[in-house]
Design a binder for these strands. Structure first.
Length: 437
RNA sequence: GCCCCGGCGGUGUAGCCCGGUCUAUCAUCCGGGCCUGUCGAGCCCGGGACCCGGGUUCAAAUCCCGGCCGGGGCGCCA
C-alpha cells in the first residue's frame, strides 16, 4: 500500500531500515516534550512508531510544530529511520517535515491511548474514536480474517455466494417479531432470516448456496448476547441424505476459520490476553434427550418439548468446556414448520443447534422438501399456507432433499474471543436503546 | 413483556447507608511554565462536575417521589 502521502505503515518501521527515508501518516498518539528533545508517537492501523526530534538535528519549524501538536490530529511525516536501542522497539524516525492534515479538537470524548477506561456505552457513543484503540481494532481485523476464511472454505466446497432480499412481504418462520417498513402503498418487513429464499434457490437448482448478510429481529431483548441487527452466515445444500452433512460443513468451516484466526492474530491477541481455542472436527454430538439427562444430573430439570433455557445452555457450556457441541433430534414443537421430522412417533426432528461455551451459535436442519408434508406442517403451526404461496410453489416442480444452517457471526466472534458483550464485536451495534451512531 | 441496578468535570472514580467548612476526592485530561532519551515521563501553577423536576429539612451530592437516560438478568433467539 502506497499513496503520495504515505509509503510505510507505522508498524512496519524496523531497525533494519536504518537510514531509509520514509513517508508516514497517521494520528498523533502522544507527545512528550522534554524541552530540548521532543517525542511524538505516531499511530496508524498497524501500530505506533516514535518520532524523535532532538532540537539540534531537525529543522527549527518542524521542532516548533511538533511541540504544538494536539492528540489525535492527523499528520504526515517525512523522515529518516534510525535504529536506536533507546527507542521503543529499537527504532525511531527523525522527521524532516511534519504536516498537519487535520487538527483534532481538544477534550476528546474518550482516551484512545486507553490509560483511562471508559464504559462501553460511552465508547459506543464515541465509537469512531473508540475504534482507534488497539482492542476494538483487533476485533474487527479478526472479524475480517474470519469471514474471509469462511468464504474460502465454502467456496472450496462448492458453495456459491448469493444475496436474498432483506425487504420481505410476509413473516417467514413466525416466532420472532419483525420490523415493519413502509413499502410504497404496502406493508413490508425486514427479513429475520434468509431461510425461505435459500430453500427456493434449492428449487432453482443452485445446489449449494451461502449468504453472509444482515438479519433483523424486533425483539425487545436487552442482554449482552442479543442485537436487533446482526450478521448471519447461512448455507443451504441439496442432495443430502440427512442432517449430518450440513453439520459436517459447519464443523469443518469453523475448524478452518478458527485456525486462520489463530495463525494470523495470535500475537496481538496474546498481548490482549486472549487465546482462541482450537476447535477440531468432528464436534461432540448429543441428542436433545441426552442434553436433558445431563442437565438433570446437574439439577436443571427441563420438560421434554421445552426449549433449553439460558441456564441450561450455560451448564452445557461448563460440561463441554471449550468443545463445541451439536445438540440434535429436537422435538417438533421447538422447531419451525420447514424442519423435517425424523421420528413421527417420538416427535423428533432432523434439527440441530451448535452450542459453544454455553451459547447458541448456530441452528440448522434437514428441511422438509415434500410439498404435501410441508404444507401440512405449515397448517399444523397455525400459519396460513396462502401467505406462503410463492415459497410453496418452489416445492411443486421438483425440489431436492436439502438442509442447511444459520450461524450468528457476532455470537461466534464473541465466544471465540471471550468478550463479555456482543456489542464489542459489532462496529455500530443496533439494540433496544441504540440507533446511532 | 417481566424483574433488578445505576446516573458526580471530557473520561474513570471517592464521597451517598449515618444529611452539616463538600468552598466535592484522586487519576487522567485541558491551558501555561521548566527540562536533550521519553516510553503510564517527571516537577510547578491554573481550569473543569453532583442527570432533570418536585418534596422533606434550619441545611440535600447524600433522604423521598416522578421523569429522562443508561447497564444487566429472564423470556425469545443467532
Amino acid at each position: 500500500m502506497r499513496t503520495m502521502l504515505k509509503d510505510t505503515y507505522a508498524g512496519d518501521v524496523s531497525p533494519d531500515m536504518d537510514g531509509e527515508r520514509v513517508r508516514l501518516a497517521g494520528w498523533v498518539h502522544e507527545v512528550r516534550d522534554l524541552g530540548g528533545i521532543k517525542f511524538v508517537l505516531l499511530r496508524d492501523r498497524t501500530g505506533v512508531v516514535q518520532l524523535t526530534l532532538p532540537k539540534a538535528k531537525v529543522p527549527e519549524d518542524t521542532f516548533e510544530r511538533a511541540g504544538k501538536l494536539r492528540k489525535e490530529s492527523v499528520i504526515s511525516v517525512v523522515g529518516e529511520v534510525k535504529a536506536n536501542e533507546k527507542a521503543p522497539g529499537g527504532v525511531e524516525v527523525i522527521p524532516e517535515r511534519i504536516e498537519v492534515l487535520s487538527e483534532s479538537e481538544t477534550h476528546l470524548p474518550l482516551d484512545p491511548t486507553g490509560k483511562v477506561d471508559a464504559d462501553l456505552d460511552t465508547r459506543l457513543d464515541a465509537r469512531v474514536l473508540d475504534l482507534r484503540r488497539e482492542e476494538p481494532r483487533t476485533y474487527f481485523m479478526v472479524r475480517n480474517t474470519f469471514t474471509t476464511a469462511v468464504r474460502e472454505y465454502l467456496e472450496n466446497h462448492g458453495f456459491v455466494e448469493v444475496h436474498t432480499p432483506k425487504i420481505i412481504a410476509t413473516a417467514t418462520e413466525g416466532g420472532t417479531e419483525l420490523f415493519p417498513v413502509v413499502y410504497f402503498e404496502r406493508d413490508a418487513y425486514l427479513a429475520q432470516s434468509p431461510q425461505l429464499y435459500k430453500q427456493m434457490l434449492m428449487g432453482a437448482g443452485f445446489e449449494r448456496v451461502y449468504e453472509i448478510g444482515p438479519i433483523f429481529r424486533a425483539e425487545e431483548h436487552n442482554t449482552r448476547r442479543h442485537l436487533n441487527e446482526a450478521i448471519s452466515i447461512d448455507i443451504e445444500m441439496s442432495f443430502i441424505e440427512d442432517e449430518e452433512e450440513p453439520m459436517e460443513v459447519l464443523e469443518g468451516m469453523l475448524e478452518h476459520a478458527f485456525e486462520r484466526v489463530r495463525q494470523e492474530h495470535s500475537e496481538e491477541l496474546k498481548r490482549m490476553g486472549i487465546e482462541v481455542p482450537e476447535v477440531e472436527a468432528p464436534f461432540e454430538r448429543i441428542t436433545y434427550e441426552e442434553a436433558l439427562d445431563i442437565l438433570s444430573e446437574h439439577g436443571i430439570e427441563v420438560e421434554w418439548g421445552e426449549d433449553i433455557p439460558t441456564e441450561g445452555e450455560r451448564k452445557l457450556g461448563e460440561v463441554f468446556e471449550d468443545e463445541p457441541v451439536f445438540v440434535t433430534e429436537w422435538p417438533k414443537e421447538t422447531r419451525p414448520f420447514y424442519t423435517m421430522v425424523k421420528d413421527e412417533e417420538k416427535g423428533t426432528t432432523r434439527a440441530f443447534d451448535l452450542l459453544f461455551r454455553g451459547i447458541e451459535l448456530a441452528s440448522g436442519a434437514q428441511r422438509e422438501h415434500r410439498y404435501d408434508v410441508l404444507r401440512a406442517q405449515i397448517e399444523e403451526d397455525g400459519l396460513n399456507p396462502e401467505s406462503f404461496e410463492k415459497y410453496l410453489e418452489a416445492f411443486r416442480y421438483g425440489m431436492p432433499p436439502h438442509g442447511g444452517w444459520g450461524l450468528g457471526l457476532e455470537r461466534t466472534l464473541m465466544t471465540m474471543l471471550n468478550v463479555p458483550n456482543i456489542r464489542e464485536v459489532t462496529l455500530f451495534p443496533r439494540d433496544r436503546k441504540r440507533l446511532e451512531p
